[in-house]
Design a protein around this nucleic acid. Sequence first.
DNA 1: GATGAATGAGGGTTCATTCAT
DNA 2: TATGAATGAACCCTCATTCAT
Lengths: 205, 205, 205, 205
Amino acid sequence: MNRPDLAARRGEILHQIRDAAIAEFAAHGFHGASTQGIAARAGITKNRLHYYISSKDDLYADALRHIVALWDELFHGIDMTRGPEAFLRDYIARKLRHVLAHPEIARMFTAEIMRGAPVLRRLWQPSRDATLRAATVIEAWVKAGLIRPVDPILLQIHIWALTQHHALHGPETAFMLGLTSEAELDPDRLAEEITRLVLSGLRNE
Amino acid sequence: MNRPDLAARRGEILHQIRDAAIAEFAAHGFHGASTQGIAARAGITKNRLHYYISSKDDLYADALRHIVALWDELFHGIDMTRGPEAFLRDYIARKLRHVLAHPEIARMFTAEIMRGAPVLRRLWQPSRDATLRAATVIEAWVKAGLIRPVDPILLQIHIWALTQHHALHGPETAFMLGLTSEAELDPDRLAEEITRLVLSGLRNE
Amino acid sequence: MNRPDLAARRGEILHQIRDAAIAEFAAHGFHGASTQGIAARAGITKNRLHYYISSKDDLYADALRHIVALWDELFHGIDMTRGPEAFLRDYIARKLRHVLAHPEIARMFTAEIMRGAPVLRRLWQPSRDATLRAATVIEAWVKAGLIRPVDPILLQIHIWALTQHHALHGPETAFMLGLTSEAELDPDRLAEEITRLVLSGLRNE
Amino acid sequence: MNRPDLAARRGEILHQIRDAAIAEFAAHGFHGASTQGIAARAGITKNRLHYYISSKDDLYADALRHIVALWDELFHGIDMTRGPEAFLRDYIARKLRHVLAHPEIARMFTAEIMRGAPVLRRLWQPSRDATLRAATVIEAWVKAGLIRPVDPILLQIHIWALTQHHALHGPETAFMLGLTSEAELDPDRLAEEITRLVLSGLRNE
DNA sequence: GATGAATGAGGGTTCATTCAT
DNA sequence: TATGAATGAACCCTCATTCAT
C-alpha cells in the first residue's frame, strides 16, 4: 500500500527538477543550460535526472508550458467589471509580487523569446485570445469615457513590460536604487509607482 | 603603401565579428553561445575567428563594453533644459528607434543581467552617476510643478523598461498585434504610444 | 553482491591509468604528455579515460604524490643503527632495484624537477625532514670515526644521484656497456659498483 | 658593404633562438615545448622564429648536436697522462662549473634520453668511442696500482652522474641545503665534495 | 527504481606550419 | 627580410544520452 507514497515522492522530485530547470534555463538559456547544472540545482546526480526526464528538449518544453499555465492561472478571475482602476491595481500587484518572488520564471520566458521563441510560438494563441478579449473591455472603457483613447493591445503589453522588467533587471534596479541586492526590492513600492504612472497615464483629459 | 588597407581590412573583420558575437550572445547567452556559431554568423571559419580574438570571454566583455559605450553616446547631448515633454519625446524616440533597429544589442545586455551581471557589474557605476544626475533635474521639474511628484530613479527605469521591452519581446508583440514578423513593428507608433502614456502619467493634477 | 567487484574493477582501471600516466609523463613531461597518449598506454579510449579522471592536472599531481609515498615506503624501516656499511648496502640495493624495475617513476620525478618543480615543491618538506634526520646519524658516524668527515646532506644527495642516474640514463648506459637494451642492465652489478665506490669513498684514512 | 653586418645579425639571432630552444626543450621536452614559447624566450615573434628555422624537429636536432659538440669541446685536451687525481680534479671541476652555469643544456640532454633518445641515438657512437679510449687509460691506472680495480666504463658513468645530477636536480638540492634558489649553489663546494668522494673511492688498499 | 559506466559529438583553444605580401 | 593572415590537426574537457546491471 505504499504506491501513493512512491507516486508522491516521484511527483516531488519532478517538481524539484522543474524548478531547478527553470532556474538554469533562466540563467543560461536553452543551449547554455546543462543537465549537469540542473541536476546540481535539484540536488541530485545527472544520472538520476536523466532517469526522470526523457530529454533536455522535453524538460525545456514542459517548463515553458508550466510557466504559461502558471501565468494563466495567476490572472484568472481578475474582475474587469469593476472598472479600470480596480482592475489595474489588482493586476499590477499580482504580477509584480509573483515576478519578484520568482524572477527565474520571467527570465526563462524572456530568454526563450530572445532566441526567437521556437518553442513558445506554439503556445501563444490562447494568450493572444485572452489579450484580444481584454482589449474589447478596454475599448469599452474608452467608449464609456473612463479612460482616454488608447491602443488596447499596446496598453496591455506596456503594463506587462513595466512589471516584467523588474524580474529581468532586478540586479540593475537594485544597484540604481542603492540597494545591495535585488532581494531588497520592495514590491509594494514598485507596484504603487507603476500603478500611479499607468492610472495617471490613462486619465481622461 | 598597403598598410592602411591592411588595418582597414582587419578593422572590418573585427567589426563583423563583434556584430556576430552580439547576435549570438543575444540569442543564447554567454554559455549557450558557441564560437562556431559566432564564426558562422560572421561568415568565417572557427579557426579564423580564433585568429582574431583572444578568447570567448574577452570577446564577450568587449562586446558588452561596446554596448555600454554605444548607449552612452546615444543619449549624449539630450537637452533636459527644455522641460519634460521635449526631453521625453526625444529620449523615447531615440531609444526606441535604436533598439528596434538593433534588438540584439538590447538582448545581449538583458541576457547578461539575467544571469547575474557578472561582467556588467563593473561597468555600472557611470550609468548610475548619470541616472542620479538626471534624477536631480526630474526633481527640479517636480518642484517647479511641471510634473507630478514621482520617484525620479524609478521613472527613468520604467521609461527604460517600456522601450527595452520591444527589443526583447519583439516577436511576441508582433504576434499580439497580428503582424507576421517583428520587422513590421512601427517605431513611430510605439514611440507615440509610450510617450503619451508617460507624459499623461506625469501630468500634474 | 557485486559491489566489491565493481569497486575492484574501478580500482584496477584507476591503477592502470596511473601507471600509464606515469609512463607518459616520464617520457614527455607534463605539457608534452597527452591524455590521448595516456589512454593509449592504458589500453582505453580517451573518452573513457576522462570518465575516470577529473583533469590532466589532477592526474599529474596524484601520480606525483603516489611516487613520493612509494619512495617513502621503500626506505621505511632501513636500519641505520648497524653502521654505515650495512646501511649503505641495503639502501643502494633497494633504490637501484626499484628504479631499474620502474625507471618511469624516477623519470617523471626528475622531469617535474627539471621544469622547476611547480607541483612537487609542496611535497618536499617531509623529504627534507627525513634527510636532516639521517644527517645527524651520519654525523654521529663521523664523530665515532666510522667514516671520514663528509657533508652529510651532500652525501645523501650523491648516493641518490648515482642510483637515480641509471633510471634516467638507462638507454645510454646500456649503449656504453655494449648492451642492446636497458633491460639487460644488471642491478646487482651496478649496486656492487656503486656500493664499493661510496664505501671506499667514505673510508677513514 | 653591409653584408657582414647582416650575416652577423643573422648569426646572433640564430644563436638566441638556439639558446631559447634549449631552455624550452629542457623545461618541457620535445613534445611539450612550443615554438611560441621558444619565440617568447628569444624575444621574437613566432612568425619570425619560423622564418629562421625550418621546423621544430630540425631545431631540436640542431640543439642536440650543438650540446654534443659543446661537451666534446669541453673535455677536449684534458690531460690523462698526469694520473688519476689531476685528471679527476680537472674533469669534475670543468663539468660541474659548466653544468651549473647552464643547467638547461644538461636538462635537455637528459629529457631526450628519458623519452628513449630517438634523436640522440645517432650521435652516440663518437661518445662511446671516447669512453672506451678513456677506459683503457683507466685500466692502465689499475694495472699500475694507481687506483683499485674498478669497472672503467661504470666509473666514468658514475662521475658523470654525480655532476649531471646537480644540473637536473638543482632546485631540489638547493632546498635540501636550505638555500632559497639553485643559483646559490656553490660549484666549488660541490666539486670538492664530489672529487673527494671519488678519489677516496678509488684509493688502492 | 536507481546508479555506475561508457560514448560520440562538440565545446574553446593552441599547435606547427604555410601563404601572402 | 620580415610580418600579418590563415589553416588543419590536435589539444583537454564537457555535453546529452545510452547501456549495463
